[in-house]
Each structure stands twice: as structure tokens, then as C-alpha cells.
Amino acid sequence: MRKKIVAGNWKMNKNLDETEALLAELSAKLPDTHADVIVAPTFVNLATAVNHLNSSVIQVAAQNMHFEDTGAYTGEISADMLLNIGVGTVILGHSERRSLFGEDDAMLARKVKKALEKNMQIIFCFGEELSDRKSSNHFKVVEGQLKNGLFNLPAEAWSSIILAYEPVWAIGTGETASPEQAQEMHEFIRKTIAGAYDSNIADEVTILYGGSVKPANAAEIFSKPDVDGGLIGGAALKCDDFIAIINAI
């Protein structure tokens, strides 16, 4: 049975004091749930988060990492650095990394390869822009991102992959893909993986929806058969909203 997951991507938000306060509140209010719960604070607060949550079921993820082990890459963070502080999950390919920082499919494939070499769990993000959706090119774009970033992997690597479909036009815009649109794309993703590998891998991979999930729409989105949870942005920064979304699954 596929894992249900609710992951909070905090992006460039929360200083140290705010991070500690939110983690304490989340830990105190976390309900009993069959879903895995993940938070991804900023790099400078990852070690604090790991220490704070060492007796909690909440897992900690990094928002990014480099594809080399060491070197002259000012400002970058390696897989070994993350593992050394107890972080074994990393988000790769987020739309903001792609659009704002020029991370293309080739670079992301290198990052995925490195993370797998280090036995890390990957939350791999992908999705179409508004122009792709309007031109009815969204399926082709998503298929290309999957093929270029992941379809060179051996079948056994997929046990370490979590997918996060992000309709880019619905991130931070107040727009949300309808539950039917989310289901349509998630179903397409599974069929695409089944075609490239087999139906077992397609059926077992967790696919999160990552487009402006809120307490008001979470239950309906999560009710769709191919939606296994969410990669949550803004709502993950408010404890009660994040808890409500966890409850919705």
C-alpha cells in the first residue's frame, strides 16, 4: 500500500526562534495519523529541527542539495553535510529552483543520482507553467520532466522516490487545480511510469499534489484515488492550518 505523506516546504521563512516555536507547536498538536509528516525548514535551521524532533515521528527534509560531494561551490550544501546532521530526505526540482535558479532537467538528474548514491529519500517535484496548460501542452511537459529527471534510473531506485506534482500556475497565486484536474494528472503520471517501467512501480510510488493546498480544499483533493498527500507551502507555516491538512488525509 502506498504511503500517505504530508510535507511542509517552509521555503525562505522562519528564523531560529520562529522555527523552534513552530516545531514545538506542531509536536504538541500532531494527531495520530497513518500519514508520514515531513517538514523542510531553511538550511540554517535544519540541525535545530532534527534535534528538536528527535523523539517525534515528524521527519526533516532539506529543500535542495548539490550534485557534488565537495568543491568550490559557494553557498551550496552537499548530501554528506545533510546526512551528517541527520537529514536523509531532500526536495529536488521544486518549480522555484527551476524557474528562479535555472535548474534544468540535466542538473536535476545529477542531483537525483547523487542523492540515491547516498541512500537518501527524494521528493522530486515537477509540473507545468500556465502557458503549458493554456496550450494543452501540460501532459507533454510533465512527461518530459519525468523522463529526463528519473527514467534513467534502475527500477529498484523508485523505492526511494516520492513524486510531487506542482501545477506552477497554482503556487502562491491563490489558484488551485480542481480536484478533478489533480486526479487527471496524477493518473496520467502513473500511466506514464507504468509505460516506462511497470504497473507495480506505478502503483506503489507516492504522488503528492503541490499546488496551494489549504484546510478548505485538502480533504477533497486527498480523496482522489491517485493523490497520496500534499507538498504544502504557505499553509505549512501556520500550525493549525498544517494540522488541519494532516487531519484531512
Rank of each mutant, 00 (worst) to 15 (best):
R2Y: 01
K4L: 13
G8E: 09
G8Y: 06
K11R: 08
K11S: 08
N13D: 02
N15V: 09
E18C: 02
E18Q: 11
L23I: 15
A24F: 01
E25I: 07
H34R: 06
D36R: 14
I38W: 02
A40V: 04
V44H: 11
N45V: 06
L46F: 03
T48S: 14
V50L: 12
L53I: 04
L53T: 07
L53Q: 06
S56M: 09
V57N: 06
I58H: 13
I58D: 11
V60W: 03
V60D: 11
N64T: 00
N64A: 01
D69E: 14
A72G: 05
A72S: 15
Y73I: 11
T74D: 10
G75H: 07
S78P: 12
D80C: 05
L83T: 12
N84G: 13
I85E: 03
G86W: 11
V87S: 04
V87K: 03
T89H: 13
T89I: 15
V90E: 00
I91N: 03
I91L: 06
G93Y: 00
G93P: 01
E96Q: 05
R97E: 01
R97A: 06
L100K: 06
L100E: 06
G102H: 08
E103R: 00
D105F: 00
A106Y: 00
M107P: 03
L108A: 11
A109R: 00
R110Q: 05
R110W: 00
K114L: 03
A115Q: 06
E117N: 11
K118N: 12
I122G: 00
I122T: 03
C125Q: 01
C125P: 04
C125S: 05
E128I: 01
E129C: 02
E129P: 03
E129V: 01
D132V: 09
S135E: 10
S135T: 12
H138K: 05
F139Y: 11
F139N: 11
G144N: 08
Q145V: 00
K147F: 10
N148P: 02
L153I: 11
L153H: 07
P154F: 01
P154H: 00
A155H: 00
A155I: 02
S160E: 08
I161A: 01
I162H: 06
I162L: 05
E166A: 07
V168D: 14
W169L: 14
A170H: 12
G172D: 12
G172E: 07
G172I: 04
G174E: 14
E175R: 06
T176S: 13
A177W: 07
A182D: 09
A182Y: 01
Q183R: 12
M185A: 09
F188H: 15
I189S: 05
I189W: 02
R190E: 10
T192N: 10
A194E: 15
Y197T: 13
Y197E: 10
N200Y: 08
N200P: 00
N200G: 05
D203C: 04
E204I: 02
G210T: 03
G211I: 02
G211R: 04
S212L: 14
V213R: 08
A218W: 05
A219E: 10
I221V: 15
K224F: 03
P225E: 12
D226C: 09
V227D: 08
V227E: 12
D228V: 13
L231P: 09
G233P: 14
A236S: 13
K238T: 11
D240H: 05
F242Y: 04
I246G: 10
I249K: 07
